[in-house]
Design a protein around this nucleic acid. Structure first.
Length: 594
RNA sequence: GGUCCCAUCGUCUAGCGGCCCAGGACACCACCCUCUCAAGGUGGAGACACGGGUUCAAAUCCCGUUGGGACUACCA
């Protein structure tokens, strides 16, 4: 099973290279020439600018020669790939979508496509911003994206959405990678493994964004906006007060040549804005269905800031296009930006990916999960002793279901049965209790060696150094008693340290039983031979009976004296592991006046 | 304010017009098992937000209301 899953990987990498080869054959020399000629013209750029390139502040739409070449290359590549429209069967949704044919598989070839070529594989990506740690809401979305790609035998890309390349995020990037790997998610292309469409970090792609911006401006699809933040804010307020839409009013789009010249002469800083076509936009979302925006409701947005840095709206569109992403699966907080992303991609001559906006994960208070919900990062669950199998299973069922019954799914079963059309359209609240219940379920089914190995970390963290053999032998006693791996430490601490300060309830039990009884039990146990669970149990029962106590009355004080607690794993089993010597010692110590 | 999304037990969900006086799971309650704590078993309580339509028939389709959420940034 696993081998089969991994198999497509080398093939996938090969396919990407093939696409470049294909491109070379597909693009006729004439086309290339025409393209070059166009870029040579650069109608938007005035000669003065060209003469002194390293000008003051930035050059929003400016770009060095080789960047432009490279971007053109990338774009061709992407367009060659994107030209074939990909489709995906909609399981539910608008009747319109349904009417156009049912059992069509994904990735069918577009009819009448010049060149034909192999069916384009599914490619999805997960693009977390490495600000702080990866919280479970985000990974849930990433998990869906991953499961979708794997289900369709496609590729999964990890892309880091970092605005700037500081060293701080270097650690965060590492953390994201660690968390995903721990969970069991793998990717075919990413910052750590590379790939044919890199770099996979936004901060390292700025020249690409600049190249694209240049092209957008050259084709009149983006323009310089000289509005200051204050002006923008004022007009926004005014529009709102008038009950009008509060987006950008398009002022700089309508600037006369004279006004523009004046701003330029003034040396006003400017941002680059994308000119949204004045038409209706429709996003045929895989989980939300058809979402329509009337003409004019989606306003022009900034694509390059006045300091030359790209905005998210530009970067995602460009990256998805260049990386050949076929399906964008992300949080529905980004639903409204899908039309904008698609518009940019279309402006670049590409085919937008299919979008699937999955609902946000909520905290227990019903608000979207965020940092202020406390420890919700993957890392924090790991540290609490949640096993990755449980977290993945739980997350998979948060907003998605296989059917009415299925509760437990392995990684492979998830891949096997994941269907984006069955993703729920309403938000789901994260329920820690259920996660813990599921965690216990998985822990119970782990084999003892594995479980012991996983628990070891928590013991050493607590300053305890269990003998591996003893720890392993203790696993059957605790596996159904812990909801997290971490709890194994408290449950078994008495085995690995002699420093067992009895808790309050234990002290009371010892007190109540009295030293005479404890001594009698010590005597009885001292004579037990061999030191086995059965013999120990018999001895305990005999001592209880001899003093006229029920099993419960007789055993609890022994538990208290030997484990320091009124709660412990089964007593005879625990004592068997503790050893005769330490058992007797502890009983006598408890019996001695303190 | 405008645009968009969402609405079944406390929570996660099944449900795509009759199979539903709504099924499963977590949590909760009771009982059983029992050396404590768990685990396990059995049973119980618990929901279609509201109002209009459409239809022989609506949790399911349409409209509205209400309530959540997102966007409306030179955040992502």
């Amino acid at each position: 099973m696993r081998e089969r899953r991994d198999a497509p990987r080398p093939a996938g990498a090969g396919r990407a290279v093939d696409s470049r080869e294909r491109l070379r054959r597909l693009v006729s020399p004439r086309t290339v020439d025409r393209d070059r000629a166009r870029s040579e013209r650069r109608p938007y750029r005035n000669p003065r600018e060209r003469r002194d390139p390293p000008a003051r502040n930035h050059r929003g739409d400016g770009l060095r020669r080789r960047d432009a070449d490279r971007v053109r290359h990338e774009l061709h590549d992407a367009l060659a790939r994107g030209r074939r429209p990909h489709r995906h069967t909609r399981g539910r949704g608008s009747p319109l979508a349904r009417g156009s044919g049912r059992g069509r598989g994904r990735g069918d070839r577009g009819a009448g496509q010049p060149g034909g070529g192999p069916v384009s594989a599914v490619r999805t990506r997960f693009a977390p911003a490495p600000s702080g740690s990866l919280h479970v809401g985000n990974v849930r979305t990433g998990l869906f994206s991953w499961a979708f790609a794997r289900h369709h035998g496609g590729q999964f890309i990890l892309r880091v959405e970092d605005t700037d390349a500081s060293r701080v995020t270097e650690e965060a990037v590492h953390g994201v990678i660690e968390s995903l790997r721990w969970l069991g998610i793998d990717w075919d292309e990413g910052p750590d493994v590379g790939g044919p469409h890199g770099p996979y970090r936004q901060s390292q792609r700025t020249e690409i964004y600049h190249g694209v911006s240049e092209r957008l401006v050259a084709e009149g699809k983006a323009y310089r906006c000289y509005c200051t933040p204050q002006e923008l804010e004022e007009r926004r307020r005014a529009a709102m007060a008038r009950g009008e839409p509060s987006g950008y009013d398009g002022r700089c789009r309508r600037l006369t040549a004279g006004e523009r010249a004046a701003f330029e002469a003034e040396g006003r800083p400017f941002a680059l804005r994308f000119a949204m076509p004045a038409r209706e936009f429709v996003v045929d979302d895989l989980v939300k269905g058809e979402v329509r925006y009337a003409p004019g409701t989606l306003t022009d947005f900034v694509v390059l800031r006045s300091d030359g840095s790209p905005t998210f709206l530009l970067a995602v569109a460009v990256d998805d296009l260049l990386m050949g992403v076929t399906h964008v699966i992300r949080g529905d907080d980004l639903l409204d930006s899908a039309a904008r992303n698609a518009a940019v991609i279309e402006a670049l001559g590409g085919t937008p990916p299919r979008y699937a906006h999955v609902p946000q994960v909520l905290g227990s208070d019903g608000r979207p999960l965020s940092k202020r919900h406390g420890s919700t990062s993957v890392e924090s669950f790991r540290e609490r002793g949640i096993v990755p199998e449980a977290l993945m299973n739980y997350l998979a069922l948060l907003g998605w279901s296989k059917d009415a019954e299925t509760t437990f799914l392995s990684r492979d079963e998830l891949i096997e049965s994941f269907d984006i059309a069955r993703v729920s359209s309403n938000p789901a609240a994260f329920d820690v209790k259920k996660l813990e219940w599921m965690n216990n379920h998985y822990i119970q089914r782990l084999d003892d060696d594995d479980l012991a190995a996983r628990c070891m970390h928590f013991f050493s963290e607590a300053g305890l150094l269990p003998e591996p053999k003893v720890l392993r032998a203790a696993m059957p006693l605790v596996k159904e008693r812990m909801t997290t791996l971490r709890e194994s430490v408290e449950l078994l601490r008495f085995l690995f340290t002699d420093d067992i300060e009895p808790n309050e309830r234990a002290r009371a039990l010892i007190q109540q039983a009295g030293p005479a009884y404890l001594r009698s039990v010590a005597d009885a146990l001292e004579a037990v031979e061999p030191w086995t669970v059965e013999r120990i149990q018999e001895a305990l029962d005999r001592a209880s009976a001899a003093s006229g106590r029920s099993r419960k009355e007789g055993w609890q004080p022994v538990r208290a004296a030997t484990t320091g607690s009124n709660v412990s794993p089964p007593l005879p089993e625990s004592l068997a592991l503790l050893g005769r010597e330490r058992t007797v010692e502890r009983l006598r110590a408890a019996a001695a006046p303190s």
